[in-house]
Design a protein around this nucleic acid. Structure first.
Lengths: 204, 204
DNA sequence: ACCTGAACACCGTTCAAGT
DNA sequence: ACCTGAACACCGTTCAAGT
């Protein structure tokens, strides 16, 4: 119904929104060949536009990478909140679902995850990353505070408790994304991992 | 005593071991400007050698980066084993010392840590990374098995338990290196972090 | 408003040739 | 054995000019 352009075959881009096309194509390259292999000129070539055209939509290469990362933050946050959106469940089940979602994201988008958590030298990008992390950590903190009120989780600063859980999950995800840990093995042991996190390594 | 070259001032490199000089200069650039800003030509320029000279010692840029990472694995492993080398101490103290060493490394060498855990596409490099990780994980596993025998740590597959601890520490280190977590705050909360890891988030 | 083409200053890598 | 110089095929970024 809302089809606008009259000739869909002749020239799909060139006037259409190049920005979105660039992002889509860049994400494909990221997935297939990694961030290091991403070239603005090659992107432009593939799309069929002049090599200077991307400069109209992204002030430089880093701006495009930042846009990709930003989209990643959103998708990850979406996946996490969806997974954690069952307050009726047992807390351990909630946590496991959350962990499974995070690890799933890492397995499906390892290059993107690496890009999202790439060290930023630009203070603005650094703040953007910290903001995205805080946003997701916020949901997790609320989950923990709720569980604390039900007596399912120990008392203490919810932020500290959140950090422990977040670091554990991020560590697994990062190790998987960097191929330092076998993804399948990590997924198989995930239930136990979460259990150990909740019940500790010291005998009870 | 073992001084070999007769004229120390005239031409410090050019015949001296360029390989080591390249690595040292590269590490400096890595620390100051990040892996992305590292250029073989600039390195050669700074050292005062032709731009093709590095090619004699490193088959390509990635080979130089791999060498830097390899040195990083060694230094980290050294720092970790030194920190954990006090079997007389309480297990929690051992673990805290280990964590402090890892986080210290991350704070001091964030770019290097990122390089060390950068996703490898080359199977050889990937195996190298996995090997380095396994080597360090091995020490940790032995620590846990010893603690299990003393009854200080719960029974169960030592590898799984090691993974939980390693993921937690690596998560903290990675978040610090990527500026997603404040380093000072993480170091301040480290004792509590390790305590929560050992005693769990569920009430006892 | 959006894109092009040429230009500039860089890259990594290779390879014959020098010492 | 180790290094040089030229050459090749790429980059990212800028900017006048086009439509």
């Amino acid at each position: 119904m809302p089809r606008r352009s009259p000739s869909p075959t002749s020239r799909p881009y060139h006037h259409g929104d190049l920005r979105a096309t660039l992002l889509k194509s860049a994400e494909r390259t990221l997935r297939e060949k990694g961030a290091g292999a991403l070239s603005l000129r090659e992107l432009a070539r593939d799309i069929g536009v002049s090599h200077a055209a991307p400069g109209r939509h992204f002030k430089d290469k880093q701006a495009l990478l930042d846009a990709l990362a930003l989209d990643g933050y959103e998708r990850l946050h979406q996946a996490l909140t969806t997974a954690a959106g069952h307050p009726d469940r047992d807390f351990e089940e909630q946590m496991t679902a959350l962990a499974r979602a995070y690890l799933g994201f890492a397995v499906e988008n390892p290059e993107l995850l690496e890009l999202m958590f790439a060290r930023k030298r630009d203070p603005d990008s650094s703040a953007q990353l910290a903001g995205a992390v805080d946003r997701s950590l916020g949901s997790l903190t609320r989950m923990f505070t709720a569980a604390q009120e039900r007596g399912e989780i120990i008392q203490g600063d919810p932020e500290h408790i959140t950090t422990v859980a977040a670091a554990s999950l991020h560590g697994l995800a990062a190790l998987i994304a960097s191929c330092a840990l076998d993804a399948e093995a990590a997924l198989d042991g995930l239930d136990e991992h979460v259990h150990l996190l909740l019940y500790g390594l010291k005998p009870r």
